[in-house]
Structure formats: C-alpha cells, structure tokens
Simulated assay, not measured.
Amino acid sequence: MYVAVKGGEAAILATHDLIAEARRGDEAVPELTVAQIREQQGLACARVMNEGSLYDLDLAALALKQAQGDAIEAAFLMRAYRTTLPRFGSSEPVDTAQMAIRRRISATYKDLPGGQVLGPTYDYTHRLFDFGLMDEGQSAVGSRQSSSGANPDCRLPTADGLDTAMPRVPDILGAEGLMEAETPPEGDPRPFDLTREPVSFPADRDVRLQAMARGDEGFLLGLGYSVQRGYGGNHPFVGEIRVGEVSVEFVPEELGFSVDLGEITLTECQMVNQFQGSKDVAPQFTRGYGLSFGHSERKAMSMSLVDRALKCREFGEAANYPAQQDEFVLYHSDNVEAAGFVEHLKLPHYVDFQGELELIRRITREREQRLAREQDTLPEAAE
C-alpha cells in the first residue's frame, strides 16, 4: 500500500482534500445538487443503478456527484453500499406485460397491436449542439416551444389514454408457433444469486442474465456489435422495446400475501433472431432478452444480443466467438471488478519490480560475460 511510502499516510489524507477541491471546481459556479443530477441526468443515473446493482435514484445521483461523473467509480460506490444493506427476502417476479408504458416501439410490426409509443428518445434528433442549453434556466423544450408558438404547458407523454392491451411481440409470434417457447425450469426454483454464491461454468441462463444486467454497458455494446458484424451468425430484429413503470411486490412471511412496495422504471428489450430449425425442431424464431433499470435502451438491446449469442449451445451452434462464450462474457463484463484489477497497477509494486529488475540485470551481466569469453577465444581459434 502507499502508506508504506515515507510520508505516504499524510499524502493520502491530503489527497482527500484535493479530491473535494477538484470535485467542487470553481466556487464562483453554483454547486451541482443531487436533486439536479437525479432529475436532469436520468440516463447517467440509470447506468449507475444497473452497474451498481441497486435501484435508488437518489443514491445513484449522489454517487455520480461524489465520483465527479465517473460512472464506474459511482457504480463501485453503489456496490459497496449495497453490501451493508440487510436482506429481507426476494420480491415477486415483476410483470412487464402490465407495465405503465412510457415508450414502446417495434421494428418488426408497423401496426403493432396496442400501437407504438415513440416517447422520449434521441433516435430522431440531429446530434447538433443546442447552444440554448448554455443559458441558465433555458431548456431545450422551452426554446423550441417559444420559437414554434407551441403550448408552453405541454408535458412529456404519459400513459393516460394509451391502449391497456399491449401484447408483447414474442407472444404474438408464439401464438402462431413461430417463436421459441420459454418454460421455467422444473419446479420453478428461485433464480441463482451471483452476489451470494460462486459462479460455475457452463452458467445457466439466469446467471448469465444477472451478470449482464449489472455488466458494463460499453463492454456489452461491443460484444453486441461484434455479433452483428459476423462474430456470431445471427441476424437480429428488435421485436419490442418498452420503457415504463412496473409494480414491485413482496410477500412477508408473517402476512402470507403480497404487498405492493411501489413502482420502479424498467427498460425491456425482446430481440427476435432467425433460426433455421432442424430435423427434430420446426423452423422458428429465437429470442434474446434484456432487462435493465431506468431508461437504458442501449444496455437492454446489447444485453439481448449477447443473451441470444450465449444460447448457441442450446441450438447446436458452435461457440466460436467471444460473445458466445459464457466464461469470457461473465468474467469480463463486470466493470467494477475489471476496474479494480486494472487500477491496482497504480499501487506500489516496489518489491515485485525490484525482483524483476535484479533478474534482468543479472541476465544482462551473464550475457555480456559470455560474449566477452567468446571474443577472447576468437584469436586462439584463428591461430
């Protein structure tokens, strides 16, 4: 540890003050509040909640503030806090079919039963800077409404008036016998908990989905991209993406019936993939699944792509590529563990390095001595 360095402990204490100073920045600029981060940096908070494996918007915003916007450091803070919380049990499975829809789109059906709900999305923006955002108190919505004469009381779309019957696309295909059926394991056991039990390989799907749900978004995005570029062999279609609120229920032992604890925001992606079938299996589509906290479509889509890639053995496909190998995906998708392993290289390794330094010096000396002896014997050989 750095404490072993002369004066190291004092330096560590001093760096805490430097962190606080760097975090605060110019004191002439108003300090960023946790509430502002929570309300205006919702997508960043969603990523921290996913990778921190804890649903709490306020804590995610606090973590981002404390970590100066470093999402991985913020996720680390969330994970560390999560380990201090008591566990009362497991909630009942959430029913995304009953989601209060905020956004719901499909790339496979134009006239989707229940309709498509575009909702808030960057998909159709021009990716040009909105310099109006640099003016304090001036929002992009406000500037657009004032320039177009739109109703200033306009709000983001809500679930009011939406069709309550919004069947999921894989269920529609399943009704025609065109979608891979999904049935729970015999006895419908509780899912594996990778935070309490060691993972073994090959890993079951519930383990893989858990690991990806809190895995690094960028890593999963890269793996999903690799599948699309040919390192996987599946052509995906977005069956459905839905974003909205679902109820979380818990059954206390003393009551024996479920109690509604409240609502959380989830993003669900069901990816439809081609499958040719076989002699024993009729041709059908297969699915990839992604579920994540908050509004986090890129994460859910990447997760669903990799989920389907990891199911290759179930369909008799060769596991030739990184996204198809569960050990590679699960061991390297955890950014908290990966960051710790990489960043530990910053800590003192004086003894290790001195050992290697002495070794290479000795080898170099021995090499020079051997060359010198060879040079001495050359004249004798010439005579």
Rank of each mutant, 00 (worst) to 15 (best):
A4K: 00
K6F: 01
H16A: 02
A20G: 05
E21K: 15
A22H: 11
R23C: 04
R23Y: 09
G25E: 11
A35F: 11
I37P: 08
R47Y: 02
M49C: 03
M49L: 02
Y55S: 06
D58L: 08
D70S: 01
D70I: 02
F76Y: 08
T83Y: 11
S90L: 14
S91P: 05
T96Q: 02
A107R: 11
Y109I: 15
L112V: 11
P120N: 08
Y124M: 11
T125R: 12
R127E: 02
G132E: 12
L133V: 13
V141M: 14
V141R: 13
G142F: 07
S148A: 14
R155K: 15
L156Y: 15
T164M: 14
P167F: 15
D171L: 15
L178F: 14
A181E: 14
P189F: 00
P191Q: 03
D193K: 02
D206P: 01
V207T: 06
L209G: 00
A213T: 06
R214L: 06
S226T: 05
V227H: 06
R229V: 08
F237D: 07
F237R: 10
V243I: 13
V246D: 08
E254N: 08
T265W: 02
L266P: 06
Q270R: 09
M271S: 03
K279V: 05
Q284L: 09
Q284G: 05
F285R: 10
S292Y: 05
M301Q: 08
M301P: 01
M301E: 11
L305H: 13
L305T: 06
V306G: 05
R308E: 09
A309Y: 05
R313N: 06
E314F: 00
A319Q: 15
Q324V: 03
L330M: 11
Y331C: 04
Y331D: 02
V336L: 12
F341M: 14
L345G: 12
K346A: 15
K346Q: 13
E356C: 08
E356W: 09
L359C: 12
I360L: 12
R361H: 14
R365S: 10
A372C: 06
P379K: 02
A382P: 02
E383K: 07
